[in-house]
Design a binder for these strands. Structure first.
Length: 486
RNA sequence: GUCCCCAUCGACUAACGGUCAGGUCAUCACCCUUUCAAGGUGGUAAUGCGGGUUCGACUCCCGCUGGGGACACCA
């Protein structure tokens, strides 16, 4: 069969899109692109109570930011739409009616209380909580009685007898699921709303999905979906169940660690390429050495048979490293534009931030040392404020520095007289002055840094001085000289 | 409780049944150096346990332990 590969990501809009969904989406997208297939975005919003339009927007914005383009979806349509479960209700209900008519499903009038009582009884006997099938063989009189009491029926799938359900998983291999674990499960609630496992089975079929690639928390749902398809005469897709992503504490990903929304990663200053690269390597590997992949390389080299089975821990430290790599070696214009925006947001009110050329020089100086774009704000602050904002440690070290006053005076002289005002000339002047004062080079440099930046660490001092400019440096040296000594 | 899945350095992972168990992040040391990063060099560090099968097991089989998931009128 040379059928076109069709895969999908089907998040439910009940929260912001988090890392686990993104990784599942990524693997689907990569697989589709690699196979020349179709990537579909579907919105699983059968849970009307918790679903919200803004979350759907968040999902789309997240994928867009990452460059994961979909070929069919709720916003762009496609030949097999609609792609939102809430718009497919009549489809689900029609299928349920058909199963009912064929005796493959039945109505159940049990109340929540009755079911709960039955479950508790089972728990007391230390048995699995199962539906006892009591509504399977009701008489017409029973049904009429329930209806007259105003009870509403749910629709249950009639679980057929048979051998274990086989999931021939592309990642796990052959998995056998005994039917004993399954129930006559609900497919339509008593309020008329169809249930996820039922909808999903129909969606895969209607959207002509060929490969369902999803988290392995769905592995045990798979038999239900396959049984529904079987009852409807549908050939099931291939399945590939991905290992889970765990938090740093090895627990399931949740708020706190990596489960924040992807857009938050963007806001913190992670580059989409870095996030994509990092996520791709969570559960997949190309070989025994390659770590850095551009999106194009990922699309060209991804394959399901190199996806592992063991769950992976989301290690933000490595993401940080990778992001640093992309900031240093990535697309310069885009990164600079982003950094300009962040500087404007952080220091826009300050006059120096309005000087585009000056901002460009600041960025050139700091970009190399960033791990996230967001760090530019605090790191660049001293370039924009008129008055130095002192770090406690810088102030303390300057105050305790031997011959501090003398050194500051000497540095002031250098800054005043050096021409041209370049890093090279400044460094030469510093070296000469250190020599003549009988000081080590660094004994002159450190106090100069404290006084002109208010910090103990930062970019190359002479480059920083050049960017700051002679006047700012002189003003700062003058005010540093007035600080009380230790 | 029942069923299903999983198990290599702290983390991500590589290894046709035969490698000295390799790479990356982190960590440590050293180098570079005006500080912090970056960069360079080197080091520490793993096959959960117990049985098999085999000339030979990280790799295949069984058990145990540990972790995760499912058993809903959630998705």
């Amino acid at each position: 069969m040379a059928d076109t590969v069709r895969v999908r990501i089907a998040p439910s809009p009940t929260g912001t899109l988090h890392i686990g969904n993104v990784r599942a989406g990524l693997f689907n997208w990569l697989f589709a692109r690699r196979m020349g297939g179709v990537f579909i975005l579907r919105i699983d919003d059968t849970d009307a109570a918790r679903s919200k339009p803004e979350y759907e927007e968040n999902i789309k914005a997240s994928f867009r930011w990452l460059g994961m383009d979909w070929d069919e979806g709720p916003d762009i349509g496609g030949p097999f739409g609609p792609y939102r479960q809430s718009e497919r209700m009549d489809r689900y209900l029609t299928a349920a009616e058909r199963l009912l008519a064929e005796g493959k499903a039945f109505r159940c009038w049990c109340t929540a209380e009755e079911l709960e009582a039955s479950r508790q009884a089972a728990a007391r006997r230390k048995e699995a909580p199962r539906y006892d099938g009591r509504c399977l063989n009701l008489t017409d009189a029973d049904r009429a009685k329930f209806e007259s009491e105003g009870r509403k029926a749910a629709i249950r799938f009639r679980l057929p007898e048979g051998p274990p359900v086989i999931v021939d998983d592309l990642i796990r291999g052959r998995v056998e699921m005994p039917r004993g674990m399954l129930d006559h499960f609900i497919i339509v609630r008593s309020d008329g709303k169809p249930v996820y496992n039922f909808c999903t089975a129909l969606d895969e079929a209607d959207h002509r999905i060929t490969h369902v690639i999803r988290g392995d928390d769905h592995l045990s749902n798979t038999p239900k979906q396959m049984l529904v398809m079987e009852a409807l005469g549908i050939t099931p897709p291939r399945y590939a169940h991905l290992p889970q992503i765990l938090g740093i504490d090895k627990a399931r990903l949740s708020k706190r660690h990596g489960a924040q929304g992807v857009l938050e990663l963007r806001d913190e200053g992670f580059l989409p390429e870095a996030v994509l690269n990092f996520l791709a390597l969570l559960g997949w590997s190309y070989d025994d050495k390659t770590e850095l992949f551009t999106p194009a390389e990922l699309k060209a080299s991804f394959s399901l048979d190199r996806v592992g089975k063991a769950p992976a821990v989301f290690d933000e430290t490595k993401l940080l490293w990778m992001n640093g790599q992309y900031i240093r070696n990535g697309p310069a214009e885009r990164i600079e534009a982003d950094l300009r925006a962040r500087i404007a947001a952080a220091h826009g009110a300050l006059p120096a931030a309005g000087d585009a050329a000056y901002v460009g020089r600041v960025i050139a100086l700091l970009r190399e040392s960033l791990k996230t774009l967001g760090e530019i704000g605090p790191l660049s602050e001293f370039f924009f404020r008129d008055e130095v904002v002192w770090e406690d440690e810088a102030k303390a070290r300057l105050a305790g520095w031997p011959r501090a006053a003398e050194i500051l005076a000497a540095v002031t002289g250098i800054v005043k007289d050096t021409s041209p005002f370049t890093p090279e000339a400044l460094e030469a002047a510093f070296r000469a002055k250190a020599e003549s004062m009988g000081l080590k080079f660094k004994e002159l440099v450190h106090p100069a840094r404290f006084a002109t930046t208010g910090r103990v660490a930062g970019p190359s001092l002479f480059h920083a001085l050049e960017v700051l400019g002679r006047d700012r440096c002189l003003a700062r040296l003058a005010s540093a000289a007035k600080l009380p000594p230790a």
